[in-house]
């Protein structure tokens, strides 16, 4: 029992369950899932579907944060990805064919990879602090997206493209399947290879990792590229869902949601140990929170207030200082960590 209480996923999962139950109280059909035309429908499915872009971006963000970094540019990258793919489809001679849709997707994915390479370059080669390096793209990115769309909202009508965000496969929304696949790939990539451990090693102690012969540069580069890729796919989902590219508003504040999901999932912003499952739960909590606010009849924009409160509470729970204050410890925290130097 004690081990269960201490497990870092216990509290996030509990919070998610409580949120879902709260919704059930207000709407008795909340937890029910029904089948209609062979497709699954229901609030739970909606949460998963609407949360898919956040889940994707949060996956990439988890690895970046584990490596002691942060990627503020994901929202801008998502906007750029949507912009390039929609513009490509819009301008192609056959805007409704599957081939065109595939071309658009490919271009967006390449764009995401290139932007990830750029961020990784600034962080790992030039050695700029991650928050600042990615701030550059965060600032310029939406301008680039507008440059691509020429400041217009580009609407496309391509059934294949639309399927990414709104389609169904085997009764499940395709966006959920994509997010699940990405989750699986990330899990395999990090745990079947040594990538996960090495990311953690670099995140916990970069100096010691270098002296152990680790090439931090390639690892850090990899996580930013992965983050760019995730952001691009999320951008495709977002634009496909509304069948348009909106350079200004697509993925706005999604970097905040993603960071929040990672933090709620128990991964420390200081880097090191991470949990992809935790991030998944975190992203679902955020999406459920949004839904809850809606269910309770509060204006949806006010969700931001709740998110802010959640961030503060979670950070306080993670802060060792806060825990120490709670325990009323007399000694300064510095003392314990300095023991080896001191004695």
């Amino acid at each position: 029992m004690n081990a269960l209480l201490k497990h870092r996923l216990t509290w996030p999962v509990l919070a998610l369950v409580l949120l879902l139950l709260l919704n059930q109280l207000f709407r008795s059909d909340f937890l029910s899932v029904r089948v209609q035309d062979g497709h699954l429908y229901g609030s739970l499915i909606d949460i998963l579907r609407n949360g898919a872009p956040t889940i994707l971006i949060a996956l990439g963000m988890t690895l970046v944060i584990a490596s002691r970094g942060i990627d503020l540019s994901v929202g801008a990258v998502a906007a750029i990805a949507g912009a390039v793919s929609c513009t490509y489809i819009y301008n192609s001679p056959d805007p409704s064919s599957l081939r065109t849709a595939a071309g658009g997707v490919a271009i967006a994915v390449v764009a995401g990879l290139v932007l990830g390479l750029w961020n990784g370059f600034l962080v790992s080669v030039i050695g700029i602090q991650p928050i600042i390096a990615t701030l550059v793209l965060m600032t310029a990115g939406r301008g680039l997206a507008q440059l691509v769309t020429d400041g217009q909202i580009i609407s496309v009508s391509n059934d294949s493209y639309q399927a990414i965000g709104a389609g169904f496969f085997l009764g499940l929304p395709i966006s959920i399947l994509i997010a699940a696949a990405a989750f699986g790939v990330a899990g395999l990539l990090t745990r079947r290879t040594a990538l996960g451990t090495l990311i953690e090693a670099v995140g916990i102690n970069p100096v010691a990792s270098r002296l152990a012969g680790l090439s931090a540069r390639s690892i850090i580069w990899t996580v930013y590229v992965f983050s760019g890729l995730c952001a691009a796919i999320a951008g495709l989902m977002i634009s496909s869902n509304v069948t348009a590219a909106d350079a200004n508003n697509a993925g706005l504040y999604i970097e905040m949601d993603a960071i929040l999901a990672v933090v709620i999932g128990g991964t420390s912003l200081a880097g090191g140990r991470y949990s992809l499952v935790g991030t998944l739960v975190g992203a679902l909590i955020i999406q459920t929170l949004t839904t809850t606010v809606y269910t309770l009849g509060i204006p949806p924009e006010v969700t931001l207030v709740f998110k802010a409160l959640v961030v503060i509470i979670v950070c306080l729970l993670q802060s060792s200082k806060a825990r120490d204050l709670l325990r009323q410890r007399r000694r300064p925290v510095a003392k314990q960590s300095d023991v080896k130097v001191a004695v």
Partner: peptide, 16 residues
């Protein structure tokens, strides 16, 4: 007081 990174606290402030 809680030694939390300024970036995350002010991010919460942004939301709030």
């Amino acid at each position: 007081v809680f030694e939390i990174q300024p970036f995350i606290v002010t991010l919460a402030g942004l939301f709030l």
